[in-house]
Simulated assay, not measured.
Amino acid sequence: MSKYIFDLFQVCLNAGNEIMEVYSQDFDVEFKEDDSPLTVADKKAHNTIATGLEKLDAGIPVLSEEGKEISYEERKDWEQFWLVDPLDGTKEFIKKNGEFTVNIALIKDKYPALGVIYAPALDTFYFGVNDEGAYKLNNASKVNIKNLDDLINQSVKLPEVTKSNVTNVVASRSHMSEETEAFINQLDGEINVVSSGSSLKFCLVTEGKADYYPRYAPTMEWDTGAGQAIVEAAGGKVTRYEDGERFYYNREELLNGWFLVSK
């Protein structure tokens, strides 16, 4: 298991503490140029994660939703980098439904090598490393974890659910497109639609609680990197809508095309 995972676990817990401190209070909501919401929790989580990653390995650059804009010219030759969404699901955070996450992925040669996702309100930590498996830790901030062995031993290997007579499709609470509905309608047998926010949709597929997550609507690279790493570590796939090829990263345009997650 990657040497980075235990340190990333601690970074996520620290960011989660910052997020939950804001979550428990009244807070203001700003709007960015693309009309997406922004809160002080996004900013605090970004600062905490950036500091933690700098201490972990100062030689690996960071591309974060809330960090400074980095030109393609500057990043096009990166062999590896951290891809970060300090608070994924800001809309869910504002609604106070608990379905928001901290996402950190290590991208190597354009593909996710490892990923961690922490849902601070649910206190659940997911992590996965390419070719080494994916795991889930409940009550993450409450259990006694001193090292990587503790983390692995106290976590559940994913997927947990392997067989079902029902096809479960996970879709966003905040985004449901006509194309997503069409995908659901073409499936055979009994279909159950599971709603979820943020990168937790990837986690549901990783756990085996959902068979598919079709995302036929816009996302950004930092929305998907960690989720893809964890899904793939559990044996699943994240493929481009247009040609079925594996999703890749550090493109000139950071806006994602449509994709399908399958277990």
Results as ranks from 00 to 15, higher is better:
R173N: 10
P112W: 13
Y216R: 03
I70G: 03
F183Y: 04
P37A: 09
Y135T: 13
V169D: 01
S198N: 11
Y72K: 08
G52C: 09
G115T: 12
L83Q: 03
Y249H: 04
N165Y: 05
I184G: 00
S141L: 13
E245D: 05
E18T: 05
M20S: 12
D149A: 07
L122H: 11
K3R: 10
G227A: 11
N256G: 06
S64F: 06
M1L: 06
I145G: 03
I184T: 02
L204E: 10
S2D: 09
K55L: 14
F31V: 09
N130C: 11
K55V: 10
V29Y: 08
D85A: 02
D42W: 03
K32A: 05
A105Q: 08
D85S: 01
E181F: 03
K146I: 02
M220G: 08
E190L: 12
K43F: 01
P214M: 05
R75K: 13
S2W: 02
T51A: 15
C12L: 08
R240S: 03
K96C: 14
L53E: 06
I145F: 05
E181T: 03
T39A: 07
A50S: 14
M1H: 05
R251L: 07
N168A: 09
A140V: 13
A233E: 03
V238S: 02
L204P: 06
E179W: 00
E132W: 04
G244S: 00
K3Q: 11
